[in-house]
Design a protein around this nucleic acid. Structure first.
Lengths: 209, 209
DNA sequence: TCGGTACCTGTCCAAAAGTACAATGTATGG
DNA sequence: CCATACATTGTACTTTTGGACAGGTACCGA
């Protein structure tokens, strides 16, 4: 797997070279295109010299190329991590991470994982739990749904229209409506918007019929 | 690294054997102690046959031994994932995951990573963002909204109907529609469902007009 | 004062969503 | 074999949404 380092200085740090003898370095995010044209690799983004707005922009730009982006920050902190992970990066570490750790991160990221410092990892899970009222058994109502209803509900949860659902499941729009009526009742929501939110564990103001 | 499968049937599934020729299987969580006394390994927990209360208990018990616990669910879903990750597991996959994927998961977990299906990974980050005051503007489009439009958008984000929004803001339904039209355009969504999802940082299938 | 912007509203219309009532076929378990 | 649940579709109707076209007012900076 190719390793591409984007850094203001344009040269490879020794520790990067140690971690990945084959690593390459470029100065601008724009250069990723050619650099990764052939082999898909991990993009390591050194944001230590950037200002805040530039950080998110760079991450988004790099992520747009489709390769996993690992951010290397000078002073890793929670807020920045959240913002950048949200912009599309799949890794967040210290810019001075040692070679051994870089390799571990690469391993995790290569295999579809997401790497953040252990303490942050815990925070992600904990914070998520604060949003999701962790109904131990998810949505009790969700269990009442039949297989077919669940399929429809999941489509709605992703913003699909009746027509799209009908095509996806190869049934009539009428049938989709039939399923939806049943779903609304079981899930105790009044329309597709509330259903979409409920499916994503987001509470609504007016659950009142 | 030793691989230990905890499963109700007590025997190794072929695909597990394929993924890890050295894998062992036990029936009860309690058996982990002896099985992992010497070599620390990954504990794979098959929860497909468990009821909800048993799931969290098993994960907690297994995690207590200090080894990374990967949960294998029959029907992976967000709520369950949250609950079990919170109970101490570091992985969550489908019980019928193919050998190749199992090995990937093992790689990630071994190196201190946390593995969940890609969609869930995004959710963890997104959900966390709802709790943490986002330093950078999450939705660049959100900034384009005027004060009034933002009010309307927020109502929709919580499942309100046009009539409700009109009453809440003390304006006509017609005006609500006018604001909505502007919002749809700026936020690049096609209807209120997608808007509601977008406002909650949840991606939609069909971003295509 | 002029132009731009936000805000508000109206009428009219078309599409989408949702409900009511009804019917058919399949599968499954007692 | 029958009851029941599920999936499917039909017709018809009401409500909700969203957009097109066409206005008003108020405020603010050039």
């Amino acid at each position: 797997m190719e390793q591409l380092f984007i850094t203001p200085s344009g040269d490879l740090k020794d520790r990067w070279q140690q971690a990945f003898p084959q690593a390459k370095a470029v100065v601008e995010v724009a250069s990723i295109g050619e650099a990764t044209a052939a082999a898909r690799g991990i993009v390591w983004l050194d944001i230590s010299q950037m200002d805040d707005s530039e950080k998110t922009a760079s991450v988004a730009a790099a992520a747009a190329f489709g390769c996993p982006v690992v951010v290397m920050a000078a002073t890793p902190n929670e807020g920045e991590a959240f913002a950048l992970m949200n912009s599309g990066s799949v890794g967040y570490c210290h810019v001075k991470a040692v070679p051994a750790q870089l390799r571990e991160i690469a391993l995790v990221v290569e295999h579809g994982g997401l790497w953040v410092p252990p303490e942050l990892m815990q925070r992600f899970v904990k914070l998520s739990l604060r949003v999701v009222p962790t109904p131990a058994p998810t949505q009790p109502e969700l269990n009442e749904l039949t297989a077919r209803e669940l399929m429809v509900a999941e489509q709605v949860a992703h913003g699909a229209s009746n027509r799209e659902i009908a095509e996806a499941l190869d049934i009539t729009e009428r049938t989709v409506k039939a399923h939806l009526s049943a779903i609304f009742e079981k899930m105790e929501v009044r329309d597709r918007v509330q259903l979409a939110l409920a499916m994503n564990n987001i509470p609504t103001y007016t659950t009142v019929n």
